[in-house]
Design a protein around this nucleic acid. Structure first.
Lengths: 352, 352
DNA sequence: CTGAAAGCGCTTACAG
DNA sequence: CTGAAAGCGCTTACAG
């Protein structure tokens, strides 16, 4: 393994010249730079990240704080991590994974104090997030996938307003006039979990302004809860014809409750997921219509935001909102049950 | 941010003594160590990982090579990563994520040459794996979740023989005598992907030795392929009553094909997944019976194996095989269709 | 456009 | 049981 000193010797320059050539941080004559890079090639020189980090006080390592897996991570979180690692690497950074088992901000403080990483990417953001408060206080660089109550700091997030609006517009376009929203758990709402809070408010508001009938409910993330919540929902609103849900794990229970009524999806009832990956939607039968989250893009953008901040060409705070994208499945359509247009019923056999 | 020099000054010792006290690498008098740790506490001293790594030539950073997400990662891979990060942190290591987009061994060579990480964890291992060959050649420390053709090196893997055997034994215990195995794609078999190759061989062998009827097929990981493969399978073997599959993404297609025949699961046909997470099995309707992979344990063990090797208390190579664990769902049971025992049919309504 | 040198914050032989 | 010092492989003022 050759060192910068070896390169300098071979190129007949001093180490500092090699360093400046490598980092492009001061002008080098064409001839000299040629010699240096030739020497590097010949020696297969790789700069040592630890040495560079120690000397420059910039490790070029980022961390992503990964929530405890038990809390029910899925494809979306997987994509955040993968795309973050990818974006980091494309910008010459490494990404370390910090698993936030304890959800203890003090653990995060220890980690930042260590000085291994230049900045951290947060996900699963709450309206009033202790981790965010801590990092602000420490003035430790970070960016978020998600956002708090206030509009400070750098974040990328799903545009939940737009996503909810699109789900409802889509269903109302199919003729649905009475639509329920099955949210995540009440506990997550009370904890101020961003998606739960924002979608709840957005649903209420859009239903109100659109003149449709609508009802929103919380639901624990289990099939049993989905089953029970659905039945309770229909007891209150017998003419409900569609459910929109962000609660992926409740979906099998909803489907079972629908089947047990002898109803078919989508002819008798429509189901639209929001923030569910197409990958997951494909696993359901019938294939779910979903508003797919831009997970990979969120991960990439959060990383780029953070790197910009670290490299100083950040223009203060940056906020980016991206709506989910509607991907049609076989779980949504006009409701034939209420309309009486039974003649429109789809053939039993659909292509797989 | 205080440094080791500050601690030394405050404790009235030299820096080397602080260092030795911290690392426990040479005897320190009780009195001195007390003073040193008191000083550390007071100064909230955190050793600087970059400096430590540079001086000791051991970064205490591990990498996990994360396959391209397009290739269809799921919960299992998510758990590998999360549990690896966790095990690393519990042992005083950090974990960086290297995404293997290109699947190019030369990229891996560059990364190892950089000298940032002490060792790397590989997953998605093939029988003859270029990455493994490369790391062996470079004598770069690594461990694997999965294994190659030979028995060299450190690995943890699923015991596919045992897993297949348990799936078949379970089904044959329910009275099934004609069982199909729906594997991953032919392409993955030809590429020598471990799980595909090993389960294929295990199924053949166990069917042969058990006197049951069985047929194994490859299948692309799409619902369309699952649908088509299932129908083709039943054309060849009309008295088939159960399918075992490792091909999670084909399952919705299988279920649809079953439903279109007017069959009910499990009364008319049984479906058993292997190496599918319970989380995923819970998303299906009916809830899938699965042989759940010990993902978190595999990740943890692979990490511990690697760390042992790095810290020199490794007793050469270590091989660990763990079978999947049967978790009953509602997709498997005795076959009433063939037996004619229609009277045993389950009630339509099952609890969610 | 290039050099000489101090320093980043640790570890680890070498000595006693 | 403890110290004094070289060194890990870079970066970056300071000088010219």
């Amino acid at each position: 393994m050759s060192t910068m000193r070896d390169v300098a010797k071979k190129a007949n320059v001093t180490m500092s010249t090699v360093s400046y050539a490598l980092n492009g941080t001061r002008p080098i004559s064409e001839e000299t730079r040629r010699r240096i890079f030739a020497a590097m090639d010949e020696l297969e020189y790789r700069p040592h990240p630890l040495a560079r980090g120690l000397a420059s006080k910039r490790s070029r390592i980022l961390a992503i704080l990964f929530p405890a897996i038990e809390r029910g991570l899925g494809m979306t979180e997987l994509e955040f991590v993968a795309s973050t690692a990818d974006a980091a690497s494309k910008n010459g950074y490494h990404l370390v994974l910090w698993s936030d088992e304890t959800n203890d901000p003090d653990e995060l403080r220890q980690l930042t104090r260590q000085g291994l990483v230049d900045g951290v990417i947060l996900m699963e953001i709450h309206m009033n997030d202790r981790r965010v408060n801590l990092l602000r206080e420490l003035k430790f660089p970070f960016s978020m996938i998600g956002r708090c109550n206030d509009e400070y700091n750098r974040y990328v997030d799903i545009d939940f307003d737009q996503t909810i609006r699109e789900a409802i517009t889509y269903l109302s376009g199919l003729g649905h006039t009475n639509i329920a929203y099955l949210n995540q758990s009440q506990a997550s709402y009370e904890a101020g979990y961003g998606p739960t809070v924002r979608t709840h408010a957005a649903f209420d508001e859009y239903i109100r302004s659109s003149g449709l009938k609508g009802i929103a409910r919380f639901c624990r993330p289990t099939r049993q809860a989905g089953y029970a919540e659905f039945n309770s929902l229909l007891k209150d609103q017998p003419d409900l014809t569609a459910v929109v849900t962000i609660n992926e794990r409740a979906i099998p229970g909803i489907m079972q409750a629908i089947a047990e009524r002898g109803w078919k999806i989508p002819d008798d009832f429509s189901l639209v997921a929001i923030v569910s990956s197409v990958r997951m939607a494909e696993m359901m039968l019938p294939r779910l219509t979903t508003l797919e989250p831009p997970s990979a893009e969120l991960g990439r953008l959060a990383t780029e935001l953070l790197i910009k901040q670290l490299e100083g060409d950040g223009d203060g705070n940056t906020q980016i909102l991206i709506p989910c994208r509607l991907v049609l499945g076989d779980s949504s359509g006009p409701c034939l049950r209420m309309s009486g247009r039974q003649d429109l019923r789809m053939e039993e056999k659909t292509s797989p």
